[in-house]
Design a binder for these strands. Structure first.
Lengths: 211, 211
DNA sequence: AATAAAAAATTGTATGTTCATTCAAGATTT
DNA sequence: AAATCTTGAATGAACATACAATTTTTTATT
């Protein structure tokens, strides 16, 4: 097998510059308005450069969506590290899905356009599946120790559905802020739990906090 | 003012044929794969004809989305006519938002791509706003007579959010059928209502059924 | 009814635009 | 001077739209 060529410093820098430029354009114009020319212009480079550092537009976009997902995932992770009870972990997961810096209309639209594109783009679909799997796994680790399996499954679904719905509503211009979104989901959780279950979630750390 | 020319029979027929053809292509390929050529081919006509009956592609697409919305709205309406208690009406609204004939992956994707496009297309945005307004108004007419204003508002929001989320999940290929979707929302409603409120909704028709 | 004239409907091609991608040439760094 | 990086223009594909030519339907006239 061919020894993979060691990356130049510049190559790494430019790739990141282009990915971040694409991300900025993406957040404003969505997937539809994302042209190679615009990305390069945003990065302050000439239009041909994109093909030099990426296999093509699709390749660059894919890296950009990964970059976007990583930001979300890290927000959740950093919040999880501060949580000690399952209930705090639950809250951390929900809050992490509405980052203060990203829960706005352009971002919601951008995310929506990726969901729509996932229908015909296997790479996007894979990223999305991975995203959902992580969310389900995170929620499950909080709920499973306290709730019966079917209740756990149903809450994982309904919380996931509400997160999606709240992002979609944001994309349509709904007058919702991060706090309202989180509150709605927390209220939904509380309504679906018995007092005893709530106490169990709040009172004891069913798993080590840094698992 | 000019007397509006009476429409030829053929003109009406062709417009509907083209709209329905567009709708079929739309359901399979989403907004992205919707080209004038494909629409005309699907209708069994030649590529130039679209410009004859519509101002352009955008015009045809707009009519097609309206057509799509009308199908949904009529499903809800016909169910509402059969309902006599507020609870039945509530259920009718929820079920009407997941028509047996349309809650499938292609349709969900198509709908998603319209939501994404609404970000940059004022016409789509207007249709969408109208759609949400009707949903909120329908739900409100059931809940308002029984619940305090803030509870009503919050349930209108959460049910709407769940409907959106369930469609979005469907678009990503989630293994959900119509029944599961409806059940999830009904369960959410029940969890959010006190026994007395549930009884009030089930027991008396707070408004005439055909209002 | 028959026929001619006009209007409407339809076709298929041509045109222009947008955009991703390619590449030869030039600039910069190693 | 060799390797790497960058440019800007050229190429070509996909597509909406415009339109001249042709066919079909309707209307008017005898």
């Amino acid at each position: 097998m061919a020894k993979p060529r060691k990356r130049t410093r510049i190559e790494d820098i430019r790739r990141i510059e282009l990915i971040e430029a694409a991300h900025r354009v993406f957040r404003v114009h969505g997937l539809g308005g994302l042209t190679t020319a615009r990305i390069c212009a945003e990065a302050g480079l000439s239009p041909g450069i994109l093909a030099y550092y990426f296999k093509g537009k699709q390749d660059a976009l894919f890296e950009m969506v990964r970059y976007n997902n990583r930001i979300l995932a890290e927000d959740v992770l950093s919040r999880l590290r501060l949580a000690s009870t399952p209930w705090e972990r639950l809250r951390a997961i929900v809050e992490g899905n509405f980052p203060a810096s990203a829960y706005d209309r352009p971002a919601a639209n951008a995310w929506l356009s990726v969901c729509a594109a996932a229908a015909t783009n296997a790479d996007y679909a894979r990223l999305q599946a991975c995203f959902y799997r992580r969310l389900a796994s995170n929620l499950g680790s909080c709920l499973r120790p306290v709730l019966p399996a079917d209740r756990t499954r149903s809450l994982i679904l309904s919380v996931g559905v509400m997160i999606d719905g709240l992002w979609l509503r944001k994309a349509t211009g709904a007058d919702l802020d991060r706090g309202a979104a989180v509150d709605l989901i927390i209220a939904h959780l509380l309504a679906g739990l018995s007092p005893a279950e709530t106490l169990a979630l709040q009172g004891q750390a069913a798993l080590p906090a840094d698992a």
